[in-house]
Amino acid sequence: MSDQERTESHLVDVQRRFPVQTPWYYRTGFILGTLAAVVLVGAFLLPQPGRLSTADKAVIAVFFGLALAWGALLFSDPGKPEWTKTVTAFGLLFLAGWLFYRYADAQWERLNHVFFNWQLMQEPAEGGESAWMVLFKGLGITVQIAVFSAILGTTLGLLLAVFRAFNNRVLNLFIIAYIDFFRSMPIIVLMVLIYYALPYTGITLSAVASGILALGLNSSAYISEIFRAGILAVHHGQIEAAHALGLDSWKTMRLIILPQAFRVVIPPLASNYVASAKDTAICSAISILELLKSAMQVQAFRANPTPLIAATAIYILLFVPLTRLAGVLETRMRVRRARG
């Protein structure tokens, strides 16, 4: 008898003495049957849309809650076959979409005309330009504000972090107060203050300058914290080694600390740039004709929300790759740190 045969016969022996059976609720047939039942109930047996009584709403909520709970039980059991989970995931997602479509009580048939009226986007608008042109001009201003506020925020943030690293008590108190102030100040409040309140003191800034300043000040607070973390992450021995070689504090900062800090801060910095680039939409509050405001204007003029949908699409197309990039940088950094 070979080893393998012996092991197999042993297994058979154990199974005979302790019969291992799949319980009924574990079997594939039951799982699929339940799924089919849930989908069928969802499709045909729930109350008709229209005026729903409270009891009807409760029935729908309980039904969907049960479906979710049942899915959660399935997903959390590592012993269940993977394909049943895949089928269930599709089933639940379909169900959620179906319930929304059925009970949202919306005029879905108007959707194409209202939301996706691309014809309207191409027609020349009031100034002889097509809606697309207006939106792209807005996009240009959005990009311009994002870039300049990032430059302003980075410069200020880096300066604050470097000065903070020298550990002067008075200066640090000021820097901490600055950071706390701008981090707790809602950007829109800051922007409105700069654009509408500051002129009373005689300091008048253009709308775009106000937007850039508000966004830049806000992100400088966050960026300075990022740089500070990067500077603190540089091992103290590095600073000692630099000092022992006779490098003064500024040279140590410039040649030893910052180059090492920059590597650490690139991923969080990238995420921060993406976040504050999205915040440019706040500039619509002080009537800068950036992407969102341009879209809102065309929408008001045409009484059709398609421009807003187009603006959304532009934001998504712009920011999904950037968010992805920031995520990739972060993962790469984490991998490198785990290795190193």
Partner: peptide, 20 residues
């Protein structure tokens, strides 16, 4: 101090080479 330290070479337990 910086002038002084140029006259004194220091070798550390943890090397402290500049990794970048």
């Amino acid at each position: 101090v910086n002038k002084l330290r140029t006259e004194i070479g220091m070798v550390f337990q943890s090397f402290n080479l500049f990794p970048h």
